[in-house]
Amino acid sequence: MTQVLIVEDEAIVAESIASKLRRYGYEVVDTLPTGEEAVDKAGKTRPDVILMDIHLAGKMDGIQAADRISSQYHIPVIFLTAYADEQTIARAKEAGPFGYLVKPFRERDLYVTIEMARERSRLEAELEAANRELDSFSYSVSHDLRAPLIAIDGFSRILEETYAGYLPPDGVECLSRIRQAANQMDQLIEDFLRLSRVTRAPLQMEKLDISRIARDILGQLATHDPDRRVHWRVEEGLAAYGDPGLCEIALKNLIGNAWKYTMHTNNAQIQVGSLMQGQTRVFFIKDNGAGFPSEKANLLFIPLQRLHSHQEFPGNGIGLATVQRIVHRHGGRIWAEGATGEGATFFFTLPEEAG
């Protein structure tokens, strides 16, 4: 039987809700008037769902109580409140509620909201368990694969350095290719692990100077590749909120791609800027490089999918998948436009204010 905790400081309202729940076969764990009591009771009884009013007696309101319960016990909280103003809804969203019903509500709406919250909670728990298994599997595979790779690279290096004089030129070339393939495989394993960590790492949100980060990345690329002549332009004043480490990884991948795919382009150009779509600022990174078939844009963010051969442009097809996961973790969107031989533009959004 589903256990429900009601947190409502008006006793008559609380009992009315409890009666509705009992008619649908729910077990009412308790009815409490304060947020402090709700947090304590949640920890002791671990109900399946908590119905929470926002304005409560005591020092802690419903939003604060819900935020603490969600972070400590991962119990789904549904707000039942008479307040539907934008400020209250904005505050409520920060607690990550599983539902929001404005009083007065229909009995059937209450039932549907509870059942949807329970199903979402179940699916999230399954997803979290699957992610933990995937992390464990990734690290296990990484360890198991790296051991033979180290042996292949080490012994082939010994052969190359010690016995190269006894081998014909094509034998030396074979050893070189073996070592190169082993190094590529090791890099692929590392990229997969990084992709897994991006999904799980907690976000540390800060205000970011996107313009400065982009200029630094382009400067580093120019230093490491002094023979390239690339004209680049970065719009001033680009700013957003995000995790500094993850957003730098995303920008390095996007700008690094623009740098890479313009390597065969005369008068190579890279532009980092922004535009407005309605009320939303959209950042973009544009180049005039190799581009891609426009009908295959949906394949760009799939791991291991490459639209160019490794011989033409090195890479393993993990970078853009990593960028997409970073952007999605920040609640943003990313998409691309391009044409073969005419360059590519990657668009993405990030929070414009602290969330």
Rank of each mutant, 00 (worst) to 15 (best):
E107V: 13
T88S: 13
L246C: 05
R333G: 01
I255L: 12
A201N: 07
G35A: 03
H55E: 12
M263Y: 08
L188P: 04
E173M: 08
T2L: 01
N131A: 07
D30H: 12
I152L: 12
Y111W: 07
K59P: 00
V39E: 02
P76Q: 05
A151S: 05
V327D: 11
E248R: 15
G25Y: 11
T262L: 01
I54Q: 12
S138T: 15
Y166E: 00
Q72K: 14
L127G: 00
G165R: 05
R146F: 04
I150C: 00
D209M: 00
A214N: 03
A82C: 08
E115F: 04
P97D: 12
K59T: 08
M116K: 10
I114F: 07
I6Y: 06
D144G: 00
D30S: 14
P148C: 11
A321K: 10
I63L: 09
F313Y: 15
H328A: 06
I189R: 06
A354W: 01
E124H: 03
L307A: 11
A151D: 06
M1D: 09
D243Q: 11
I326M: 13
E342H: 10
D30L: 04
V13I: 15
L80E: 15
V29S: 02
K59H: 06
R157G: 08
N131F: 09
L56K: 15
R333Y: 11
T340C: 01
A65M: 02
P244T: 08
V172E: 03
T345M: 05
E295K: 09
G315S: 07
R228Y: 10
E352T: 05
D61R: 09
L320D: 11
D216A: 01
S136P: 00
N183S: 14
Y139I: 09
R91N: 15
L5C: 05
D30Y: 06
A239L: 05
S309T: 13
K260N: 13
K103N: 03
R194G: 11
Q3Y: 02
Q269E: 12
L127N: 09
I54G: 12
E36P: 02
A117D: 01
R91K: 15
H264Q: 13
V112A: 02
R325D: 06
V7L: 08
L307H: 04
G58S: 03
F79M: 08
L32M: 14
F192P: 00
R118F: 00
L123T: 07
K286G: 08
T322L: 13
D153N: 10
Y241W: 15
H74L: 07
V323C: 12
C247P: 03
L149H: 05
A201S: 13
A344V: 05
K207Q: 14
K207I: 03
I158Q: 04
A90N: 06
S294E: 10
D135R: 14
A147K: 13
F192W: 03
R108L: 07
T345C: 10
P293S: 01
S71D: 15
I249R: 02
W259N: 07
A57K: 15
L254V: 13
G35M: 03
Y26T: 14
W259I: 06
V230L: 10
R179T: 14
F346Y: 13
V102N: 07
R233F: 04
E126T: 02
L320Y: 13
E119Y: 10
G341D: 02
P303G: 02
A339L: 03
I12D: 02
M263C: 08
I158S: 01
F284W: 09
